[in-house]
Design a protein around this nucleic acid. Structure first.
Lengths: 349, 349
DNA sequence: CCCCACACGGTAAACGTTTACAGATTGCCT
DNA sequence: AGGCAATCTGTAAACGTTTACCGTGTGGGG
């Protein structure tokens, strides 16, 4: 691991100046003879350009950061999966930050933009605080936020539309003849929890169904908690005929508990999840789920950022990705569902 | 986004030299008065150290790359999940490369180490070619390989032990009284495919069971292909009583087809998957699976790399992570399985 | 045959740090 | 009071590039 060659080494060996070496390496107009000599020297020495020195001079790192709450979360993973190739194609490397949804960590990431180790940032905060907004306003590099941001915040923004998503699901359940549609939600002080709860209420109202507090159960966005919440609900409302779950994990928990309670899905109780993760297709019965377009959001965010990096100044944009209802066995019954191919690669190694 | 302050700006404002500024910022011994002035100036200006310039001078980027075949693959994801916090705790940023298992891309990543934009690399190639070995020998930064590497390759190496893993699974099936244990494998020209196929054969031999070609079916590492392979196998050997699947996706495909064929799992046919992905716990019946310790491998790799980055020279090390059999309903039956808590965070946003 | 235009290539400065070295200041001892 | 040690700080070089600027040499036109 001896010190690698620099343009100085090459210049010496080729008998030219470092300026010429640089010009050749950058494809600037140069005499054939010089090009040949430089190339030869570079090849022989196995020269590779030092990215750090380049960045220092050019003030561009060709790196972009993606900050998400949790590497393990399938929704973020779906974004990552789309962000990665878009950036790669444009010649950017991806720096990954996992903030564990800790606000201080997110602020830290925004602050670290000042270190200029990346050209831009895509961030998906669980909730946006005052501190976020301040840092955003002062950010030293372009930022794209995935998630909702207060009106008027001057930042590129990509949003899901969970309100419409919930409505799609509730309408679907209604159209299947269900009338006692419960909602199993996560904590109301999270952005998704609040939005999904409100949307549920609205959707019911629009369908002319009464809002019944007994049909709402708050747990947390995990499988076990989801199951527990459903158990409580069942004890209170044994004849519930549909569950609108605020995410897929909750829905999986619901399936566990319904199975244990001897309820048939979807005959007795139809179940809808949200986020359309890989788990939805894998479960049995497979889970009808509202896709909030994580993949599309990731892609849109990457494209917004690239545009900003290449384009320069323009007004901040807002992209809203429409949700999609993916109907599977947990509402439609297994015979209604064609064999679904949702493979993903997997090796081992 | 005006040009941020540099140590020059601070030096001017504080009325000291840039050397003093640098010393203060690095906590080197300095007079109290100077420290105060510099800190004050830095605060007022909202100064943040430029990481690129620092890296150029110090020849350390505090970045580490992780190169994997596919961001979507749960096995790599599990590694990533462990690698991330280990690096973060040590003050390193994570650069993510997705190579799509294309050899040229992997070589590229190794080559790009010469650009010195990272201090080290963790790589998990699907198969290791001659070209890999050459580049590894010439690599300009420390590398840790997750996966098997030829004897004598001078590189830190973390391995799974799929041979023992397969044996655990086959022994388990045998102990349940199964004697017609089939293997559904992926392509034999992949490293995992070959290893798992051979291990299956060995395990049978050790149990005194005859190796029967009819019980081996090659497909690919995907759900649909897995299902197809099982369908063929069933047509040929209707009374098969156990399936050893080379990964979880294949096993999910197997469950699909067995269900369609009216076979009870595990009563008629027991099924074992491999890799113990999230899907295994989510499926129904939940899937007994051999964990090859992706998480542990990721962690070990990160630690090896850090040790090398901090420690300096030492002999290359080999860490082998033992497999673990995670027994679930697809072999033990659902009543035998306690409620399993395998939550993972999930928000939405 | 001289001059000019032009193509090419070299010198040096710059990007923002860190750090070796030497100069300056302070304080203390004799 | 002078000198020396110890402490602090400033100057400048270095990290490896890119690039503005200018000097050199060539060829062609007058």
């Amino acid at each position: 691991m001896a010190d690698g060659p620099t343009i100085n080494t090459i210049a010496e060996r080729a008998g030219v100046s470092i300026a010429s070496v640089s010009r050749v390496l950058n494809g600037l107009p140069t005499r054939q003879e010089t090009v040949r000599k430089v190339m030869a020297a570079a090849d022989e020495l196995g020269y590779v350009r030092n990215a750090v020195a380049r960045s220092l001079k050019s003030r561009r790192t060709h790196q972009v950061a993606f900050a998400m709450a949790d590497v393990g979360n399938p929704a973020y993973l779906a974004m990552l999966r789309e962000i990665q190739p878009v950036l790669k194609a444009a010649g950017y490397r991806l720096v990954l930050h996992s903030t564990d949804a800790v606000v201080a960590d997110e602020i830290d990431v925004l602050h670290s933009l000042g270190e200029r180790y990346v050209d831009g940032l895509i961030m998906s905060p669980l909730r946006v605080t005052e501190a976020h907004l301040e840092m955003l306003a002062a950010a030293r590099a372009p930022v794209v936020i995935i998630g909702s941001v207060p009106e008027g915040t001057r930042v590129d923004n990509v949003r899901a539309d969970s309100r419409t998503g919930v409505r799609l699901a509730v309408d679907h359940l209604y159209s299947l003849g269900r009338r006692r549609i419960a909602m199993i939600n996560g904590p109301l002080d999270t952005v998704p929890g609040a939005a999904r709860g409100a949307a549920y209420r609205e959707a019911l109202a629009d369908l002319g169904l009464a809002y019944d507090e007994n049909l709402v159960q708050i747990g947390d966005f995990y499988r076990a908690e989801g199951g527990r919440a459903v158990a409580e609900l069942l004890a209170r409302v044994p004849d519930v005929d549909a569950l609108m779950c605020a995410n897929d994990l909750i829905a999986l928990g619901a399936l566990d508990v319904l199975r244990a309670a001897g309820k048939q899905v979807p005959e007795d109780v139809a179940v809808v999840g949200m986020d359309d993760t890989d788990l939805a297709a894998a479960s049995w019965p497979s889970l009808t789920s509202v896709s909030l377009g994580s993949a599309e959001r990731g892609k849109a965010a990457a494209e917004l950022l690239l545009d900003r990096l290449q384009g320069g100044d323009r007004e901040p944009r807002l992209v809203t990705v429409p949700p999609r209802l993916v109907v599977r066995a947990s509402t439609a019954g297994s015979e209604a569902i064609a064999y679904e191919r949702t493979d993903r690669k997997e090796g081992g190694a």
